[in-house]
């Protein structure tokens, strides 16, 4: 049972994700997690401001339940299946992060330099966290999907638009990682 506590290998994760995607299709739905953001906008009254949110959001209830499941899954895995070992990152990744001033890269899931705002508050962190989320939400809806909808489902369905979107994800990601992150931190 030791393997449960070790980090799980990529082929296991990829296999599970494909099975989950296929199960959703079998249940008559689709794998697309960013749709939840639109559902939330619609549920809190976004329809008053844009027809884009005038949807029968209750039809997306299954997706909100799915996301609640993932939150519980994250809690269970990090609480009961955690061996407290740092993430085995490439030493080159670690040294590049240390050069940018990040302490202990890989010790936690997230860098505390950005995500620990309770003990080390700054408006810069607050701004970065909200803005990065804003780009994710805006971009996902503009492109009509995110990693689950385009990269996993779309490419599995051999959709050219999804390939274009994934190329876009990488252009944006590479610009952020190689140009902006060294400037921001």
């Amino acid at each position: 049972m030791d393997f449960l506590f070790e980090p799980w290998p990529w082929y296991m994760a990829g296999t599970f994700i494909a099975i989950i995607m296929f199960s959703l299709i079998y249940f008559g739905e689709n794998f697309g997690l960013s749709n939840n953001l639109r559902t939330i906008c619609s549920a809190i009254g976004g329809g008053k401001y844009s027809d884009f949110f005038k949807i029968d959001w209750k039809k997306q209830k299954w997706n909100l339940i799915l996301i609640i499941g993932t939150i519980i899954g994250g809690f269970l895995a990090s609480t009961f299946l955690n061996n407290q070992q740092p993430i085995q990152l490439n030493p080159k990744t670690i040294s590049s992060l240390q050069d940018l001033g990040f302490q202990e890269p890989g010790k936690h899931y997230l860098p505390h330099e950005l995500f620990n705002i309770s003990s080390h508050f700054s408006f810069k962190k607050l701004f970065i966290l909200i803005m990065s989320g804003f780009f994710v939400g805006f971009g996902a809806r503009y492109a009509g999907g995110c990693t689950s909808g385009h990269a996993i489902s779309g490419l599995s369905h051999l959709q050219v638009p999804s390939l274009i979107a994934v190329i876009g994800f990488f252009i944006g990601g590479l610009i952020m990682t190689h140009i902006f992150i060294p400037i921001i931190f």
Partner: peptide, 26 residues
């Protein structure tokens, strides 16, 4: 649509380190 939207998404993904699934799991 896919290229511009994708690039904006990618900028946010690399900065936050989280796409719309992981941000909830975290």
């Amino acid at each position: 649509r896919y290229l511009i939207g994708g690039i904006i998404f990618g900028l946010g993904w690399a900065l936050s380190g989280a796409c719309p699934g992981p941000m909830f799991i975290l």
